[in-house]
Design a protein around this nucleic acid. Structure first.
Lengths: 341, 341
DNA sequence: TTAGAAAATGACAGCGCTGTCAATTGTTAA
DNA sequence: TTAACAATTGACAGCGCTGTCATTTTCTAA
């Protein structure tokens, strides 16, 4: 029924040990032998038994996805991408939801990792942005791949898959500017999130590129929540119009904030986008469920995650990764919440 | 470092086979022996090695969560609940996202199940509502627990954890009636979903209990989408007011529809809740991010899932389940989208 | 009390693979 | 051509557990 290593060995006329070598990409197998074995593997549709591998070997074929993210859509996409890579490469995935604020969370995760003999971790924010945490893990000789905001890896601790929020934010801001806006506010997410910083940088860069002076009254320090968007927009739209302070456009650090801003604008009887343009970021499902629908930026999370997991598995296997993309730039999605001034 | 069955055997002075028996709740172990072993297990903090178990035994210690649901929040909650049960009972979880519409999906799932030697499945809608699918699986002697809408299991194919949407829908409708509404519309989800049927029944039952005639103009057959809510509400709010047809309240089959209805009402310049009350169902995160916030019904998905998974594992182990709750009634959450007529 | 049956326990093989190390084959340089 | 070495391959043990079956202990009834 299910082929074992023995069947492959017989069919290809070598010992099981040699088959094992081929399956693990070990060197010192003659090319000819390797091909014979690979043919047999294909013919029998052989897949190594994970349990046996784990039991017999010192190596591990399990990676983990450790997450703490309030955005379920993000998590699901990431997870499915990682899962796809695992399937492809015969790895197992351990899902580890947790609370990054919890006191001994690092110890707890390390304990789980050890117990389950995890070979590597895929990390997304906030974990991926915590160098101390990453260092603790890599010090254990556990491989890590981080998915994070930025245009280049911040350190050498682990390979990174970068999401260039800065360029994307610049594009969004430019879109607003092209629409004729020059009083563009920015409602930030948590200041300690890399994504906030990057998106802010993109915003500033766009202003500068267009010779628009930055007005610090138009910067709201908020957090990634609907509530924060409501409060931020209220504050902004209460600014003195004659003093040239009240914005004609708001760039919100994510869609949730943007939805809040929309809500507040509505409360204050501003028409969107006639009197006020609002842009979000992330292209979360509810950016299509606001009124009007949000202009935002989209990133291919599933693909990013699959790539990151493949990279991780290559690292674990000590193969060189086959030139995967390691930087993604979210793309502008224009919908109905932004318009000409 | 990590204790093995051997360590336990030595410490408790019995053979490893006996320890194995205790670990697997097998009969024919004297009570005294069992206790000795359990003490040693506790002392050494012993946990059986899953890989070895899988390799050696014919039994499996893996269950799978097969899902296809567009609602990421639902999926994440379910998954985390199942995961919690697995942790507790030393089982492994295989996550299997898939597309229920895909042609050979049943075959594909069966193949995965066999390959991974899965002992049982947790099923949520739409899979849990497909008796043919369930039968295919149970015929393979694979255990199944279904989570579904209703007040009692529809058949004997598998144990079920029921979510009593009917009672909850009745409560919501009653809430509307208590607010003084008697022209209450219903925007349905897909007619083939059990949840739609159940919620509709609850709606009708509430009307009947209050001697309110059902007006079929107020029933919109839609689907679980924002779009559908928009269209449904537009249609409803265009009804002739003098003909006594236009509703003063809309009960939407879920929050997404309700959000759409809200959107449409806004477009048509109806004030919520002064001129129109709108209620949703599901308590999804964006029910808090609409304007105004949605009145809805909440169900403890994580708890439900944990319970279902525990039940499944008990079945697999042939232990009697310890009287778990098998019916949940979602609870009314009153927010700002419903008000007095 | 004791044979006979039932209950409780243990010895041992082996699940499918990898690690170790020995055996074989191929290659190089004198 | 051959010793010396490197590359390739294979034999075998054993990972931690469970299934089978034999053995020991306990219980029952005459």
């Amino acid at each position: 029924m299910k082929a074992t290593i023995n069947d492959v060995a017989k069919l290809s006329g070598v010992s099981i040990k040699t088959v094992s070598r081929v399956m693990n990409n070990e060197p010192s197998v003659r090319q000819l032998t390797r091909e014979k074995v690979q043919d047999a593997v294909k013919e029998l549709n052989y897949q190594p038994n994970l349990a046996a591998r784990n039991l017999a070997g010192t190596k591990s074929y399990t990676i983990a996805y450790v997450y703490d993210n309030p955005n379920a859509y993000y998590v699901i996409d990431m997870q499915e991408g990682i899962l796809a890579a695992c399937r492809q490469q015969g790895f197992e995935l351990l899902i580890n939801p947790c609370d990054s604020q919890q006191e001994n969370i690092t110890e707890e995760i390390i304990s789980t990792i050890k117990h389950a003999r995890v070979a590597g971790l895929v990390l997304t924010p906030p974990f991926s942005e915590n160098p101390d945490f990453v260092k603790r893990i890599t010090d254990l000789d556990i491989h890590v791949v981080r998915i994070m905001s930025g245009d280049a890896a911040p350190d050498e601790l682990s390979p990174c898959v970068m999401v260039n929020d800065r360029d994307a934010a610049q594009t969004i801001t430019q879109h607003l500017i092209d629409l004729g806006h020059n009083k563009i506010a920015f409602i930030a997410g948590e200041a300690e999130h890399m994504s906030t910083i990057e998106r802010y940088k993109g915003y500033r860069r766009a202003l500068k590129a267009n010779n628009i002076d930055f007005n610090k009254n138009l910067l709201i320090e908020g957090e990634y929540s609907f509530e924060s968007g409501v409060n931020g927009a209220k504050k902004l739209m209460s600014l003195d119009n004659s003093a040239d302070d009240r914005p004609s456009a708001i760039f919100s650090c994510n869609d949730e904030i943007a939805a809040g801003a929309l809500f507040a604008a509505r409360l204050m009887n501003f028409n969107i986008p006639e009197q006020l343009s609002i842009a979000g970021f992330e292209n979360s499902p509810f950016s299509r469920q606001t009124w009007p629908k949000l202009t935002t930026a989209n990133q291919p999370n599933k693909e990013i995650a699959k790539n990151a997991a493949s990279l991780l598995i290559s690292q674990i296997r000590k193969q060189k990764s086959n030139h995967e993309i390691s930087q993604y730039v979210p793309q502008l999605v224009v919908r109905d919440s932004t318009g000409k001034v």
